[in-house]
């Protein structure tokens, strides 16, 4: 699978072994089951698993509000989303999710220190100008932060670059000339930045490009197409 769906010119060929593995898993039902659990996208579900009932949650770049709608309904959180795209704000309004329109690159001014239990940023950090600033802001207004991002060191991306082309895949669906992503970093790079900013990574979760959860023992920097980190201060 993948070649046709992904289109474009990159990640053209999967190895025979990889394809056989995928077919075995498809038959066992795992591949189809995981991403559909509870109707939430697999990465959002992984984030939701970390949220405790009744928490105060801030979701940065909340998109259409799917995660917050789920968290409000299933975990009774007091949740707010921040989104700058008008159409996404309207989608949130339609589903009754609290949404505050704001440009994240301008920080989280106006929010009190430590007001939120958890500040989430799902697949948006790579599109931020002020990467360091927003990470610091997340841990200023929140006790814990959760950040998910595409891992540019995923082995298929490495292969793609070795073959001379920028990676295009489901986790990096854009071409180099139209991608909204402006920061290209890896799991290992992120670890280094956290050390620099005195941020502790409490926990990692990784997923391959089919949305399958990797084991904590796996080398996420090599095997994860998408990585999720739970962060805090010492």
């Amino acid at each position: 699978m993948g070649e046709q769906r992904r289109g474009g010119c990159a990640v053209r060929d999967h190895s025979e072994r990889e394809r056989r593995e995928w077919e075995v898993e498809k038959e066992s039902g795992e591949a189809a089951e995981e991403p559909l659990r509870a109707g939430l996208r697999f990465d959002l579900q992984a984030i939701a698993d970390w949220v405790l009932p009744g928490e105060r949650v801030l979701d940065l770049g909340c998109g259409d509000g799917a995660l917050l709608a789920y968290l409000t309904q299933e975990k009774g959180v007091v949740g707010y989303g921040i989104e700058n795209d008008l159409n996404k704000v309207i989608a949130c309004l339609e589903r009754g999710v609290n949404v505050i329109q704001s440009d994240l690159d301008r920080g989280l001014a106006g929010f009190e220190d430590g007001f939120f239990d958890r500040v989430i940023m799902s697949q948006a950090l790579q599109a931020m100008h002020n990467t360091q600033g927003i990470l610091q802001e997340m841990l200023r207004v929140g006790r814990e932060a959760v950040v998910s991002f595409p891992n540019f060191a995923f082995w298929k991306h490495r292969k793609s670059v070795l073959e001379g082309r920028m990676p295009v895949s489901e986790s990096l669906p854009h071409q180099w000339f139209n991608t909204p992503n402006i920061r290209f970093f890896t799991v290992a790079d992120f670890v280094t930045l956290c050390e620099l900013l005195d941020i502790v990574v409490f926990e990692w979760r990784g997923f391959d490009d089919e949305g399958r959860a990797l084991s904590p023992a796996d080398d996420l920097n090599f095997l994860a197409a998408l990585a999720i980190a739970r962060l805090g201060r010492r």
């Binding site: 309004l93 999710v97 609290n98 505050i100 329109q101 704001s102 106006g110 007001f115």
Partner: peptide
């Protein structure tokens, strides 16, 4: 308006905001 919104958030009220 953002002052209103921040105050509502800090009192845990349901609020949405659009500029």
């Amino acid at each position: 308006s953002r002052e209103i919104v921040a105050a509502l958030v800090h009192s845990e009220k349901r609020v949405s905001y659009l500029e």
